[in-house]
Each structure stands twice: as C-alpha cells, then as structure tokens.
Nucleic acid binder design. Structure first.
Lengths: 142, 142
DNA sequence: TGATTTTGTTATCAAATGATAAGTAAAAGA
DNA sequence: TCTTTTACTTATCATTTGATAACAAAATCA
C-alpha cells in the first residue's frame, strides 16, 4: 500500500466531504444567526449542557469572543445560561425551546436532502456505506 | 437498514472529518494569507489553470470579492494571471514559483501529520481504509 | 450594425470575526 | 488568611469577509 497515494486520495475525499456538506446545509441555516453562531448552536445541540469554556475549546474561539457570541444568541432567545449550584463561576449553556425548534428545522432540512441523495442506493449500498463509515471513523478520523 | 440512523451516523462522521481536517491543517497554512485566500490557493493548486469565474463558482464567492482577493494574492506574488489568446476577456490563473513553494510546504506539513496518524495501521487496515474511501466517494460524497 | 451577454474590475459599505487589555467573582491552594 | 487560579465579562480595535452598484471591454447574437 502506497501511503503517498493514500494521502492524495484522502485529500480529495475530504474535499468531497466538505463540498457535499456545503450542498446539504446551504440555506438550511436560519438567516437569523451568523455562520459562527450556527456552528456554536450545532455543538451545543449535540453536547448540551455545555460550559462556555468547552465551547471555546472545541470551536477554537477565544473566551471573550465566545462570550460575546453567546450573549447575542441569548438575546435572540436561542440559548439560556444556567449557573452551576456547586461552582458558581460556571455556566451551563443549553438551547431554549426556540433554539431547539430552530435547530430541528435545520436538521430536518438537511436530513431530507440527505435522504434524496441516497434514495437510489440499494440495500447492499447502504450496508456498504454504513460499514465504510465505521471503518473510517475508527481507523482514520478518530 | 434504518436511514434515520445512517443519517445520524453520517452527521457525526462529517463532524469528525472536519475536526481531523482542522487538526491536520492548523498552522500548516502560511501566515501570509487569510483563510479564504488559502482555500482559493488550494483550489488553484489542484485545478490550475483556472479562470476567475470558476474560482468564484466553486468557492461560492461573488466575482468582485474573488477579483479583490486574487489581486491581493497577485500582489503577494503567489499567483499570476495569463490572458487567453482566444477569448481576451478570460484570464487563466495559476500559481507562481513562490506560490508553488508555499503550497508544497503546506502540503508536506499536512502529509507528515497524516502519516503520523496512520503510522500504527497494519497493511490490512490501510487496505480497509483505501476501500472505504472508494465506497464513500462513489456512493455518498459524489 | 446595434443590442445583449459574458468576464472581469473598481469602489464603497456594513457586518462578522479575531485579538487583546483590563476587570470581576468564585474557588482552590499555601 | 492571603495568594493564585479558574471561569467568565466588558470594552475596544483591526482585519476579514460579504454585498452591492457602477463600470469597461470583449464576445455573441439578432
């Protein structure tokens, strides 16, 4: 196995993943939030409740900028902060009802496009895809 | 096969791909260009020669903004414009020697990190990865 | 030939993002 | 108790990015 060739194949693969991700998510994102805010919401959605520091780490943003953007999301009533009773410095962030509604709509839109994309795949194709995802997730994109 | 479950698995997979891509490429990008400019250079690198309109389409940027950023890259001596002799409206963009050097360094850095990541993979693992990439590229991320 | 389309440019503006300094309050450690 | 560390905020500034209007030149079309 030529590792150099595998690298090039992998580069072209990730390019495809980025392109398809863009196609599936474009316009699925509500206009009321900026791209960075949407990414934060995505992370909060799957990881809530989560602290400001964790968002800062995972989204590669500075604390001040994270704080500012969370404040905006809070003003838009999409997230809420709940202070930890044990450590009163900490704030747990989670989606509000409005936030959940918004994210559900986005995810539903992306999912319907995803289903369109695999509508012509056979049972075997789907099994292949499922297996391939497992392989790459564990052996390459861990 | 539950398509809903496949969708969720796919979401988590693309998240991993984005995260790993970020890890592999962070700080590999020269400080002399902005993120958007780097993406343009990446595209030019693999697709050259390419026109301004094509960059605009593929990078989802407006013509004026594409023109502006290309002008900056040109001032930095990283790309050059060659006018088409047949259609004098068109300009073919390609990397200069400096541009190639810069991109080669970036790619080399990313590749070395990639090789580190798969250094412990067995022959069979590599074959599995290779096959999985083919499957996903043709059946999902086409 | 004259109108329209294509390809690209220049200028300008607003919004989004990133970086940094300075500060607060609570917790943890000595 | 006093100091240090952690978690977060506020304020400010520069840069990047996106959007739009107005333009120019070449090609195509009628």
């Amino acid at each position: 196995m030529d590792k150099e060739a595998l690298f090039l194949k992998c580069v072209s693969f990730t390019t495809s993943v980025h392109r398809v991700t863009h196609e599936l998510t474009k316009n699925a994102k509500s206009d009321s939030v900026t791209p960075v805010q949407y990414n934060m919401l995505e992370y909060i959605t799957v990881s809530q409740p989560v602290t400001l520091s964790e968002i800062s780490d995972c989204q590669h943003m500075s604390m001040p900028n994270t704080s500012r953007e969370l404040k905006k999301l809070s003003e838009k009533k999409l997230i809420e902060k709940i202070s930890d009773t044990e450590d009163r410095r900490k704030q747990y962030i989670r989606l509000t009802k409005d936030g959940e509604t918004m994210m559900n709509e986005s995810f539903a839109c992306v999912e319907s496009r995803f289903l369109q994309r695999i509508q012509n795949a056979s049972k075997e194709d789907l099994a292949d895809i499922d297996h391939a995802l497992d392989i790459l997730q564990t052996k390459l994109f861990y």
